[in-house]
Design a binder for these strands. Structure first.
Lengths: 126, 126
DNA sequence: CAGGATCCCCCTGGATACTG
DNA sequence: CAGTATCCAGGGGGATCCTG
């Protein structure tokens, strides 16, 4: 079926899966400021467990969105940085943020309206 | 923390949560063609269970992205259609598809390279 | 036809402790 | 410092059956 193709074969789905991932986008945004160390990321992204951070970083690295550089030092030093491919994602993330900021009020108003069925509205949303 | 604000308060996160949802985007894309009935959607989106379809539709409706119209007929007839807000999402989805199509090859190449560590590369991805 | 209700399983992801 | 290993609870989501 067409939808099946959409759901599995289609590039969008694969990208969606990564974009939709909670931490991936957060990491990409953090790295927009420049290369960061593991610990720096774990501190800046509050609430992320080491497991999830590592997992997220591996996923992004596998997709070629970030690069991982190990410096031959003691103590170990590892930097993560956006690749060119990763940087190209920033536009998309930016567009997403823009849409969000532009329409979040409408969305929240819709939610309130939906959650309060009895209340009269001055206009219909459809 | 800043990341906390990002993760919870920030509009982007809320939109991300919806965008990232497997079925939501699929439904929105389907509805881009025009209003659709429940059954039509369930057929076109292969693999979706009634439960998830309903849940997805409710979520989109709650966010004001789609409208639900019940026709007073027997058998029941319910149409779902994008709202103006929902339609404005199409641009974003379009941008996403565009990015995906444009870069999916790079991503897949990166994945192959990542999964085959021994292999020599002609160029570095960073 | 368009779902609601229920059961249940699995997998995500958090917490914690440990290591090269 | 930069992770890995392990354990474990919660919830997402499928399958199924039922109804206005």
């Amino acid at each position: 079926m067409e939808a099946s193709a959409y759901a599995k074969n289609c590039p969008s789905r694969q990208i969606l899966d990564r974009i939709g991932d909670t931490w991936s986008v957060l990491v990409v945004m953090m790295l927009a400021d420049g290369p960061q160390r593991y610990t720096a990321l774990s501190r800046r992204i509050e609430g992320v467990s080491p497991k999830m951070l590592t997992q997220t970083l591996r996923g992004l690295e596998r997709d070629g969105l970030i690069g991982r550089t190990v410096h031959a030092e003691v103590p170990p030093r590892v930097d993560y940085a956006l690749t060119e491919l990763g940087r190209s994602l920033l536009d998309l993330v930016g567009a997403l943020e823009k849409w969000a900021e532009l329409h979040i009020d409408d969305v929240q108003a819709a939610r309130v309206a939906y959650d309060n069925p009895g209340v009269r509205m001055t206009s219909r949303s459809l």
